[in-house]
Design a binder for these strands. Structure first.
Lengths: 187, 187
DNA sequence: GTCTATACCCAGATAGAC
DNA sequence: GTCTATCTGGGTATAGAC
């Protein structure tokens, strides 16, 4: 693999595991098996490299989600498919993790892909719910924007509960609880 | 205020804002208006100080939550009261924030109060839901443990969405969406 | 209890040779 | 493009004086 590519992928992994403050250029170089000079030749510094890594992760995350969103089935089936997709629960969300990092949030170039990703996910979920309403799957009283936010929040919060417990169980519980609530309104 | 007390409180604040890796002994000393020697006289180092701060925050968080949980009203009213309590949404959760910090999660002494806090919250919510079921407020089919996890997750995830958007709005949407889903099953 | 001095290592980056 | 040398600053802690 190309050096640039290895640098970006290594940075993606390290940002996921240790966040922005917790990730040093040195650690990236070691993980990417690239030298100091090589890294600074291709990127102006840590921030620019992080920008490339975050943008890449944002694109990958959206592509993975869209696979569930655009599948076959009713709205409930596609939402359940998204919620129950195979996930590395204890590692958490690549994007959500970065929202607690003040240095990331302070830099508009780093923040933008994260903001955009969650905006997109909520909008996409809201569309699916709206479709479900039109087909009579959900009652007209169900607010698509609110429900979409609730679904996205359960996933992000599920990761937090799982990490706190060092177990995927609370995540699974939260997801199943949500699915049952959604089935409740659908009936 | 006593020096020890100022050190603990300053550490609580800094952990909230910047996390464990992002918080230096020096920054704590400045915030607490305490000297280097003073800090190391009272605490063996950063880890011990963080332990005291996290334990303190855990106790405060549980006390604040219990105020809503033990109030008057139906289960739904108390849960809504908890969800809609006045919160500094963009600052996020003191405890939830730390779950992404690998150094905190790797140290059992730092992890324990966090684990315990979320375990307690979920258990307490499950009790309230179980009460609601007994009073006929909720159907017998509602799973208390799952629903409790869902509620806790919406809060934690709501914070993540809010920080990503740099706006409290997604948090409010997620909470209202959840409340409507709960009202749906209650009917 | 609190202060200052000191120490060591790492973060983050620049410079110039190859 | 990649390497090594070098630099400034900060993180984290210890030592010993007051």
């Amino acid at each position: 693999m190309e050096t640039v590519e290895r640098l970006i992928r290594s940075t993606q992994d390290l940002l996921w595991e240790r966040g922005y403050v917790g990730t040093s250029p040195k650690a990236i170089q070691v993980a990417a098996d690239a030298g100091q000079g090589s890294m600074y030749h291709h990127f102006s510094g840590k921030a620019e490299l992080a920008k490339a890594a975050i943008e890449r992760s944002a694109a990958e995350l959206q592509a993975a989600a869209e696979e569930q969103f655009s599948g076959d089935g009713t709205a409930t089936e596609r939402i359940s498919g998204y919620l129950e997709r195979d996930r590395d629960v204890l590692k958490g969300c690549r994007m959500g993790r970065l929202t607690t990092d003040p240095d990331v949030m302070a830099d508009p170039r780093l923040r933008a892909p994260i903001d955009e990703t969650f905006g997109w996910i909520r909008a996409r979920l809201a569309e699916i719910i709206a479709e479900g309403k039109q087909r009579g799957e959900y009652p007209g009283s169900l607010d698509a924007g609110q429900t979409a936010a609730t679904i996205a929040a359960v996933l992000q919060g599920g990761y937090v509960l799982a990490r706190a417990a060092d177990s995927a169980e609370p995540f699974e519980l939260a997801v199943q609880g949500l699915i049952h609530l959604l089935e409740g309104v659908a009936a």
